[in-house]
Write a protein that binds this DNA or RNA. Structure first.
Lengths: 214, 214
DNA sequence: CGTTATTTTAAACAGGTGTTTAAAATAACC
DNA sequence: GGTTATTTTAAACACCTGTTTAAAATAACG
């Protein structure tokens, strides 16, 4: 296996588990059985390595997501919000074939990127993969046309938060749930549970006023 | 002002903005105009400083939360989920009188703690302030008795994720929203928007099966 | 005031960080 | 096979990390 791939394979798991700041290049390279300098030689810097890790997943994921969302937009019947969100399930789970534990690793990485690096990843995703966002917005708009742009903006970010945050601590939560409820559950099960939640959240009735007496 | 408080005041803002790992003691002490060794002298270690920062907020917040949730549980009429979640609003916003930008700082800290330190803060909160969780669970159980314990477990963690994640990036989101929608919005406005979302999410109908064909 | 606590200070500590260097090893090509 | 490219390697780089030390400054108290 090529050095570049060995680095990527070790890096994404470590980044997912311990964050970008919390993972050192020495951890990555020693786990990958690779010389320390290899990262800077092949990727240039740690920041570029982070981008490469995310790109590897997004390049696999974004075409699938785009086509799934597009076919929902072009379907004959008006889709429900539940259907829109369900469009993410298959592409996300396909990452498990792409790489072992790929789904949860990627979602954890997404969570890390949102909080670790002060918005750097938000910029990276929205500029490098804008179609996913626009197609998704279109689909939601079809499913729930009464929702104003501003309400949609907030609710989509709430949804992003729910997903990303849940997945970034999914392993710990699955452990707790298995102890307390004695119920086998994997990442697919968590996704199946979160979809009705976010669909209902986005579908929530619109309040007249957001002003509170402070 | 006493050294200990100067440290706490600088630390919580820096921790909120850059994370626990991402903030060095030298940043904290230099911004607080205090000697580097003061942290170890007054708090013992960086980890203890983190606990002290969180405790200062939780000690202010938890009595208010507990009494608000308790009075909902003991009310004559059966509360709605929206009412249960609204019980958090006033106590949270009161942190703004406790300290400038206290509400968003605290919520950001909460988000940091969940992702930064590999579950350390989850342990800290659930062991040091268990009543908030039990009262909250009781209130939700009253408002939505059909929800199984397991479903509630997951939906409450989804909710936690939504809140914490949204707030940890609330400043960036408020900036974007103000540019795009030209609508003044503060932390109270964001809270007012997120409550219908999470209430609807928790209130979502229960799916029969969580098994997906993988 | 003098004496004991408490707090502050500058300096050093040992260890970790990302990155660079120049020599050694391997691969590619004619 | 000989000569370039490419890749790997160990070592060092400069800087940052949390923590400790012992002396200096301040406060508290009889």
């Amino acid at each position: 296996m090529k050095t570049k791939d060995k680095i990527l394979d070790s890096a994404d798991v470590l980044f997912a588990n311990k964050g970008f700041n919390g993972t050192s290049l020495r951890e990555i390279t020693s786990q990958a059985n690779v010389n320390l300098a290899a990262v800077n030689y092949h990727f240039g810097s740690k920041k570029e390595l982070i981008k490469a890790v995310m790109s590897r997943y997004m390049d696999e994921l974004s075409p699938q997501l785009e086509s799934a969302l597009l076919s929902i937009c072009q379907a004959e019947h008006k889709p429900t919000l539940h259907e829109v969100f369900s469009a993410f399930v298959e592409p996300l789970l396909s990452l498990n074939e792409f790489k072992k534990n790929g789904t949860s690793t990627f979602l954890q990485l997404l969570g890390r990127g949102y909080t670790d690096s002060q918005g750097f990843l938000r910029w990276f995703l929205t500029t490098q993969y804008p179609n996913v966002f626009t197609h998704f917005s279109k689909a939601v708009k079809i499913a729930y046309p009464e929702l104003s742009s501003e309400d949609m903006f907030w609710r989509l970010h709430f949804t992003m938060g729910t997903i990303v945050f849940t997945m970034s601590s999914s392993e710990a939560l699955i452990d707790i749930a298995q102890n307390d409820f004695d119920n086998k559950l994997d990442i697919a099960g968590v996704i199946a549970r979160v979809i009705p939640y976010v669909a209902a959240g986005v579908a929530a009735p619109i309040s007249k006023s957001y002003k509170l007496s402070v």
